[in-house]
Simulated scan of single mutants.
Amino acid sequence: MGTREEVTAWRPRVPGVTEVFHARFTDYAYPMHVHEAWTLLIVDDGAVRYDLDRHEHGTPHDTVTLLPPHVPHNGSPATPHGFRKRVLYLDGTRLGDDLIGPAVDSPDLRDPVLRRRVGQLHTALAQPGDELEADSRLTLIGDRLRACLRPRTAEADRRDPELARRLRELLDERVVPGIALDEAAALVRAHPAHLVRSFSAAYGIAPHQYLMSRRVDRARGLLLEGRAPAEVAAATGFYDQSHLTRHFRRLVGVTPGRYRGSAR
């Protein structure tokens, strides 16, 4: 069988993510190697077999694999048609050294919620302008990983309406420029994961969804004034017109152009 390789890699504007790597390999085998970063891996098709710390492991499509930094591992297809995978490389700000031992012992995690969240994160990372969503999703993923690997030390899911209110005020003040999750957490003096959970519990919506809703509301007003969608996108904090269109259609049901054209 001939070699078939498809690779896409980029560095998103999300703190702690050093690289996003999507690949399809038919018969390529990785030799033993190490990474400086944590490796968070999901396989969408096929399977990978690999050795980590002299033990053999596998990655069926329903698992999330977490490989710690500086620990040698390899990788090769475990099915005749190869594998398709999506990988995140995360620096130490996202996952601490205390998880290295548990990750070596149990690198493959069968957790449907975690698997779904990692897939959603990759979708967000592929969309310029959705950095707050990606950062929020990654924060909750890190919290879930810690709960899986060290359940006794996982932070309890507590409601904190006052903290949620303070974050909402920050988002309201910065609808157009936006705010990074770590900056918001520093301003309100809370752990990012607790901040996201508190906001979602209080308002029934994630912080990034709230911010996009506020931006779309502003965009509606400007469109009804007759302003062009590209101009509205820039004025309301969207990355570009396609970014506006994606979120506008999701929340309003039509594109900004059709909405503008319907105005009387």
Rank of each mutant, 00 (worst) to 15 (best):
Y89L: 04
R189F: 03
A29W: 04
R166C: 10
E56M: 09
D51P: 04
H208T: 08
R11H: 09
P102T: 05
A235I: 06
R137I: 04
A29K: 06
R11F: 03
E56H: 06
A234S: 12
G16E: 12
E231T: 13
V176C: 08
L88P: 15
L88A: 12
V216G: 13
H81G: 09
G204R: 11
T123E: 03
D27S: 11
G46V: 00
L138V: 09
G2S: 13
G261M: 04
D130K: 11
V7P: 01
V175L: 08
A9M: 11
E162R: 14
E225Y: 09
V7G: 06
L99T: 09
L251A: 14
G221D: 11
S262A: 15
H122T: 04
L167I: 00
T255I: 00
P207W: 06
F238H: 14
H57Q: 09
A230P: 04
G253L: 08
V196D: 14
R110T: 14
L109I: 15
L149D: 13
G101M: 02
M32I: 01
A185T: 13
H70F: 13
H247S: 06
R115V: 11
A235E: 08
D51N: 08
F199T: 04
A234G: 12
F199V: 01
R86N: 06
L170Q: 15
S106P: 08
H70Y: 13
L138E: 07
G119R: 15
R260I: 07
A23H: 01
F83W: 15
A134M: 12
G261P: 03
A126I: 06
Y30D: 04
